[in-house]
């Protein structure tokens, strides 16, 4: 088979901290019968090798759509990338030939999906589905691929991997299935893994195991990881930095612990306040009032304005840019940005 290589060698050649993936000003629309839904409106983020970026947001915030665009699995049509660049090791994947793009998928960037039961093919054995990576991308024989599949299953700690390699997805428990998804993503030791709500469909106890496994393998292989989630609890332990999305825009970015300690956007604050806490037992839960915006008609100005308790006139007319934020002395906080006209009040007040 012909092997088309993307520039750059293995991960070892990478300067630490150099972005592996850069998304620049990405715009994505969906053309529906009711009109044009603006799902992503100028999203930029970057991930370096060994780094974990958590993308946080409600459903419809554009977090998954952005990831699908990066992966090249966006349904087009109805989806359409109207502007922006997606650079992988400095090369724009949106202008790459489909053939070259396909060699990036699975081999350099892999994806873990939310619901492993539906994301795995029901009629093919897990061994086949894992081995397929090696057979297609590396031209291994059926037997070699099967041996590799067993290795992978052992790597993600599936008990009795040798006996279970011929089993089908429905014969595994939810946690084991998600491990198989992880194994599949890891198969070719990609540079970057995108995990789209990897633990949402799992029991809480299994969630922690799967997250730990993912984090461990990530540091072992020094991979970049984009963790898409709506669950603040999942993020805290594993992420380095967080991007909070709302209505197709990033509204705040911050190193993970700083974001938890002092959010710089009312939406982030609302999200943090809505986590049920044991020390507030018996009190009403805080919820952000209202509903996420309809993407067919995103509000003028700041998209969060109908739900914000600090809303002022300027919020209704002017779109707040994502700007660096500073501490009380005016020193810029590294990695911190907010898209709120009144980020100072939110951060310091």
């Amino acid at each position: 088979m012909d092997v088309v290589e993307v520039t750059g060698g293995g991960r070892e050649n990478l300067v630490p901290g150099t972005p592996l993936l850069e998304v620049e000003d990405l715009h994505i629309e969906f053309h529906t019968q009711d009109g044009v839904a603006k799902a992503v409106n100028g999203v930029s983020y970057s991930v370096a090798a060994g780094e974990t970026l958590a993308v946080l947001g409600e459903s419809g915030s554009g977090k998954s759509v952005t990831a699908q665009a990066v992966m090249g699995i966006l349904d087009m049509p109805p989806g359409k990338i109207t502007a922006g660049r997606i650079l992988f090791r400095g090369e724009d994947m949106l202008t790459m030939s489909p053939k070259l793009r396909r060699t990036v998928r699975g081999r350099r960037i892999a994806m873990i999906f939310q619901d492993a039961l539906s994301a795995l093919n029901p009629v093919l054995s897990v061994g086949y589905q894992l081995g397929e990576m090696f057979r297609v991308h590396q031209g291994l024989s059926r037997a070699e691929a099967r041996a590799k599949a067993v290795e992978l299953m052992e790597r993600v700690r599936i008990p009795a991997a040798k006996q279970r390699v011929g089993d089908f997805p429905h014969q595994f428990s939810g946690g084991m299935r998600q491990r198989i998804m992880i194994a599949m993503a890891l198969a070719l030791e990609p540079d970057l893994i995108i995990a789209d709500e990897p633990t949402t469909a799992l029991d809480v106890t299994v969630q922690a195991q799967v997250m730990d496994l993912l984090a461990e393998l990530q540091s072992e292989f020094n991979m970049g990881l984009i963790l898409i989630t709506h669950d603040l609890g999942v993020v805290a332990d594993v992420a380095d930095k967080i991007a909070v999305m709302y209505a197709g825009r990033i509204v705040e970015t911050a190193p993970v612990h700083e974001l938890y300690a002092r959010p710089a956007h009312p939406y982030t604050r609302g999200l943090l306040d809505s986590i049920p806490r044991l020390d507030q037992k018996g009190q009403d839960l805080h919820a952000i009032k209202g509903l996420p915006p309809n993407l067919l008609s995103i509000p003028q100005g700041c998209a969060f304005n109908p739900r914000c308790d600090r809303v002022r006139d300027v919020c209704l007319t002017e779109l707040p840019p994502l700007v660096p934020v500073a501490d009380e002395e005016g020193a810029e906080l590294p990695g911190r940005r907010s898209a709120c006209h009144y980020w100072r009040e939110t951060l310091h007040g």
């Binding site: 699975g106 999906f113 539906s118 093919n121 397929e132 297609v136």
Partner: peptide
């Protein structure tokens, strides 16, 4: 189906 999206994400050729 979701598994079709997975197959694309695995970088498999369209024929496969």
């Amino acid at each position: 189906a979701d598994y079709m999206r997975t197959a694309v994400a695995k970088g498999l050729p369209r024929r496969t």
